[in-house]
Computed example of a mutant assay.
Amino acid sequence: MLDLAKLTGQIPGISQHLTKEALASRKRLELAENLLGESQARQIELVDSHQKWRDRLIFAAACPVEPLDTKIYLKAPPYTHSVFATDGSQISPSHHEIAYCYLINIGRVMLHYGQSLHPLLDSIPEVFYRPEDLYVSKQWGIRTDEWMGYRRTVSEAQMLAEMASNWVNPPGAHYEPNLALVDGSLILWFIENLPLEARETILLPILAAWEELRQSKIPLMGYLSASRSIEAVNFLRLQACTHETPNCVVNCSNLSDRYPCQVIDPLRDATLWANILEPGQRGPLWKSSAKILELYDESLQVYFCYVHVGTEIARIEVPAWVAEDTELFEQSLGIMLGQVYKGYGYPVALAESHNQAVVRGGDRARFFALLEQQMIRAGLKNVGTSYKETRKRGSVA
Rank of each mutant, 00 (worst) to 15 (best):
N275T: 04
M221H: 07
R42K: 15
M336Q: 02
Q339G: 00
A323D: 00
F190I: 10
S227A: 08
F367R: 08
N178E: 13
G338L: 02
R393T: 05
L121S: 13
I230F: 05
Y100W: 11
A349E: 08
A61V: 01
G13T: 03
R54G: 00
T19C: 01
S25W: 07
R377V: 01
P67N: 00
W286P: 03
Q215W: 01
S229P: 00
P12N: 08
I98E: 10
E294D: 12
R282I: 02
K381N: 12
G37H: 07
D363K: 11
S25Q: 15
L120D: 05
S288T: 11
E298F: 05
R364W: 04
P12F: 05
V307L: 15
P347G: 02
Q339A: 01
V318G: 04
A60V: 10
A85E: 10
I14Q: 14
L31W: 08
L134Y: 05
R282T: 02
T153L: 15
A24K: 15
L121T: 14
E231S: 11
C101Y: 00
F128G: 03
G361A: 01
T153H: 15
H50N: 04
T144N: 10
P78V: 10
Q158N: 09
P177V: 07
I335C: 01
V250W: 10
L46V: 09
H174Y: 11
R54V: 05
R199S: 03
A198F: 07
N254W: 12
R199Q: 10
W140I: 05
I313R: 09
R268N: 08
Q301L: 10
I376C: 03
E294Y: 11
G114H: 08
G114A: 06
Q374S: 11
V309D: 13
E389R: 15
I335T: 03
Q356W: 07
P195Q: 04
M159N: 12
I98H: 09
S15R: 15
N247Q: 05
P67Y: 01
F59V: 01
S116D: 15
Q16N: 04
R268K: 15
I142G: 05
L18M: 13
K342G: 02
L179P: 08
T326G: 01
E162T: 04
A274H: 14
D297T: 13
L4T: 10
E30M: 13
P279L: 06
A60G: 00
A173Y: 10
T311E: 12
L224D: 05
D3P: 03
I376H: 06
Q215N: 02
L293F: 07
H308I: 01
K381I: 08
R214D: 00
S253H: 10
R143Q: 13
C252D: 01
A76D: 15
E192P: 02
M221C: 14
I335F: 02
